[in-house]
């Protein structure tokens, strides 16, 4: 099993952390993983991507991910960038969006690629749990449900190891659980 994920968002939303936590969770359950952020100038608001490669076999390749099995878009406003989001995604792959309503053009194009499209309103969850638009752990929860390649328990353990402050860890756990439950297949 080799599974590759590309995360899209904007600086400050937690794209890198989401990818990092997924890799840590995969490693916790005995898999091999490589997580790499794509850093440009580090500034809030700029489009940011991160990549996660997960495998049952040891990984030694260090090249980028060009044909992801799954694309996760954690920023609701990026939906209109259809070409950017769907670039290289595998036919029959997975698209997970932070959206109340999925952009029509994106949905149409995704259908033509045979993608399975999932969506969750992570904006509302983030505002209720964190009081600000932090989408990393909410969208990680959505990914875990939609992809089914890592166990929820291992993701929660990775979060508790990463966020040493108990209150912060538990709020992230809540965000993950709520989006895990709340995400649904749109197409």
């Amino acid at each position: 099993m080799l599974y590759e994920v590309r995360w899209h968002g904007r600086g400050g939303q937690g794209v890198v952390t989401a990818s990092d936590l997924l890799a840590r969770a995969a490693i916790l359950e005995g898999k091999y993983a490589y997580h790499a952020p794509e850093f440009g100038p580090e500034r809030r608001g700029a489009p940011v991507r991160a990549f996660t490669r997960i495998s049952d076999e040891p990984l030694e390749q260090h090249f980028g991910i060009y044909n992801p099995d799954a694309v996760v878009v954690i920023d609701p406003a990026l939906q209109s960038e259809v070409g950017y989001i769907l670039e290289g995604v595998k036919e029959g792959g997975l698209l997970i969006l932070n959206a109340r309503k999925v952009d029509d053009r994106l949905l149409e194009r995704s259908r033509s690629l045979g993608l399975s499209v999932w969506a969750v309103d992570a904006y509302s969850v983030a505002l209720e749990v964190f009081g600000r638009p932090l989408y990393n752990t909410p969208m990680l929860g959505a990914f875990v449900k939609a992809a089914g390649i890592v166990k929820l328990d291992n993701v929660l353990e990775a979060v508790r190891e990463r966020f040493k402050v108990p209150d912060l860890a538990e709020r992230n756990v809540e965000a993950i659980k709520r989006c895990f439950e709340g995400v649904s297949r749109v197409s």
């Binding site: 840590r24 091999y32 490589y34």
Partner: peptide, 12 residues
């Protein structure tokens, strides 16, 4: 260690 590829890359 290769900048970003290994410095910021996470592995087991």
């Amino acid at each position: 260690l290769d900048g970003f590829i290994l410095s910021h890359g996470l592995e087991a």
